[in-house]
Simulated assay, not measured.
Amino acid sequence: MRQARKVMRFPKTATSVEQWMRVAGWIGLGLILIVSLVPGPERPHTGLSGQMEHTIAYLMTATAYSWSSSRLQERLAWLAFLSAVSGGLEVCQLVIPGRNGQVIDWAASSFGASIGTILGWLARTIVSQAGERRLSG
């Protein structure tokens, strides 16, 4: 009697990319938490304005989360979550030595998360359509 050979199946490329983007989002969020909660003198500085640092950090994190999400509701939930986290971190900074929580920083973070959500959706759409075209002919 002949045994059926087990065939190793690899995940679809899109699924693999989605998984990596979700991991990148969690890494981004972890880095944001660490950098936001250390005392002022210990925080690394990029040389950019504080609001630009906020915008870029949340833009990159939201782009990863948005790319990893297949539904609009999930993307909007990540956007709301990141905006809420940003607001919470600004409040926490009020009691951290050398830090000051500011509404303008929360706004910059939320703006970056909004733009990142749109960029992640666009990137996922473009990559998906290119993959479909490649498969169809």
Rank of each mutant, 00 (worst) to 15 (best):
R99N: 02
L31N: 04
R133F: 15
A113P: 00
S114Q: 05
Q93D: 05
T55F: 15
V7P: 00
R99L: 09
A108L: 03
V103W: 13
G120F: 04
G50M: 08
L29H: 04
E53I: 07
H54F: 10
E53K: 11
L82A: 11
I118K: 01
Q102R: 15
G120V: 09
S16C: 13
I104D: 00
L135V: 10
L48E: 03
L122A: 14
E132G: 11
A108P: 03
K12M: 10
E90D: 05
I96N: 00
E74R: 14
G98M: 00
W106L: 02
V23L: 14
P97V: 10
Q51I: 11
R71H: 12
M21P: 02
L33G: 05
G131A: 06
I32T: 00
V7F: 08
S114V: 02
A62Q: 06
A24R: 06
L48K: 00
P97N: 04
H45K: 12
L72T: 15
S69A: 13
Y58I: 10
A77I: 12
S69Q: 04
S83G: 15
T15I: 11
L79Q: 09
V127P: 02
Q19I: 15
L79M: 07
W20Q: 09
S86K: 07
T117Q: 01
V85P: 09
A77T: 08
M1D: 03
A108H: 06
S83P: 00
I32V: 08
W26Y: 13
R75Y: 02
G50K: 06
A80G: 13
G116Q: 00
A24H: 00
G88L: 10
S49P: 09
L48Y: 02
F111S: 11
S68R: 02
L29F: 09
G40F: 01
C92D: 03
L72R: 13
A4T: 05
P97M: 03
S16Q: 11
G137F: 10
S70D: 12
Q93K: 07
A123Q: 02
W106F: 13
S36C: 01
G98V: 10
H54S: 08
W121L: 15
F81W: 10
M52N: 11
A130M: 13
V7Q: 09
